[in-house]
Simulated scan of single mutants.
Amino acid sequence: MTSNNHSQNRALQQDARAWSEFTGINYTAALRQMQKPLAQGILGERVSARQLIATLEDHPLIGGTGDDFVLGESGFYADNSWSFDGENDYIELALITEALRMFSPLAKTETPEVGSYTLKHTVEALLTDTPAAYVSNGRLIWAAAALGLPIAEYDGGSSLNLLIGVPDNEHDYLFKMVRSGQTRPQGHHFRPPGYEHLQAALARCAAGEPAGDPWVRPAPVVEEPATFHAWLLAQADRDEPIGDFATDYAEGIRTSAHRIAQTPDELVLLLNELTHSPEAYDAARAAIGEWLGTMEPSPGIRTMRISSHREDVGGYGAGSGDMERLEYRCPCGYGRIVEEHDNIPGFREHSHRIDCGQCREEWRFLEGRSVRDWALEPVL
């Protein structure tokens, strides 16, 4: 046995003794919980039972002394104390901890906004096929405190519920993903970083397999101020069509109703996928034109390729070649941009056209670009 395995087994044994004494169950039952695969740490190190117990005693908000706990099964200053079944209590707390670990850390300057009672229902739905299919309000708060998340009372106090420091937008995304009757998010910019890894690990454990490789938390994404997305958000306070469109776009981002468009090309693709009014499309086109006008030279926009075809031809005495046709979706989404190349020695021709009446009036090819390197700009 390696020294590392010895240390791990010793830690499990120490945890089991502490958990046995704390909950009143026998040592063997406690050790059996410590050894379960679901309790070995999925998004981080295994949560220590001794740390969980110490949290109820030492935490600045929920800590108590001796048996006089501030936190109970129903929440903060609950009348009912803890009710342990001796089979899954530690595993439940370990899984709740994993669910909380998947969120992005809240900045120290931010005030917790997500209520523990709402969050506990979301975590229940996430863990519905695990021993933590039911999560009490108190255990959710307990796990959050043990993990070191920011916790605060509601203004005025006198509530069983506390505010938990997980990002509100990430919780809203998770709520819509796991709670029945909710419209699933169409944009995934607020997906908690550990969500997919945790889901995959839980599925493997349910199949009797190891949880898998350790999770590495991704580095925070720093928003580039020069992106089209950032510029468009900044237009939301304008009292005219572009401002109205930017406000609607920002609301769709906030609610995860659609994804982020970092470029005008991505906004055009997004509009092709979403239901929108002619006025919204006109405002978006005007916004793209204004944005492109700030750049020299203008990069224009490219649309999505939808088909390509190449046909070999024998040529006319100068050798064989091919004829190539590529089709792209036009900006409005209902027509085509056609790019054609006659790659035949002696008869080389290259052309492109907007095969859509509406877009021929509202868009034009940038000058000075080759046929293969075409780009469009709005006609304003």
Rank of each mutant, 00 (worst) to 15 (best):
M102E: 08
Q35C: 12
E367S: 15
Q35M: 11
G24R: 12
P241N: 09
H309P: 06
V221I: 13
E98V: 00
E367A: 14
L269Y: 09
R259G: 15
Y328W: 08
R184V: 14
S136P: 13
G293W: 01
A132F: 09
F190S: 10
G66N: 13
R329V: 11
G75Q: 12
G115T: 11
E339A: 01
I53Q: 12
L198R: 12
T23F: 04
H188V: 14
S7A: 13
D322C: 13
Y90W: 14
R369Y: 05
N9Q: 15
M1F: 06
E73S: 10
V114E: 05
E73Q: 14
G300P: 08
A284P: 10
A234G: 10
F69Q: 13
C205R: 11
G368R: 06
A144V: 00
V338S: 07
A94F: 01
Y77V: 09
M323Q: 10
L100N: 04
I288N: 07
S307A: 15
D168Y: 08
Q235W: 05
Y195V: 03
M102G: 01
C330M: 00
R364K: 09
L174K: 08
S104E: 04
A94E: 00
R329I: 12
E327Y: 08
S20F: 02
I42D: 07
S3L: 14
D168G: 02
G293V: 02
L233Q: 11
I151M: 04
Q14A: 15
K176C: 09
V371C: 11
E98W: 05
N9D: 13
T128K: 15
V379S: 03
L292S: 06
N272V: 00
I53V: 07
P331E: 02
L100Q: 03
A133H: 14
R305V: 11
E327H: 07
K36A: 15
G138M: 08
Y316S: 08
E327P: 00
P297V: 08
E113T: 08
E73G: 01
A16E: 06
V47G: 05
R184C: 04
W215Y: 11
Q182E: 15
G315K: 10
P299S: 10
H352D: 11
A230E: 05
P220S: 02
V178A: 03
E251G: 02
D312M: 10
S7P: 00
S81N: 10
T111D: 04
N5H: 14
G346A: 08
A99R: 07
S83A: 13
I301V: 15
R285K: 08
K108P: 04
S308I: 07
H197Y: 02
S180F: 03
G181D: 10
Y134A: 05
A207M: 07
A203M: 13
Q14P: 01
V268H: 07
R310Y: 02
G75V: 09
I344G: 07
G252K: 10
S7F: 04
G319N: 06
Q235L: 12
P150H: 04
W374L: 03
N88K: 15
R325A: 08
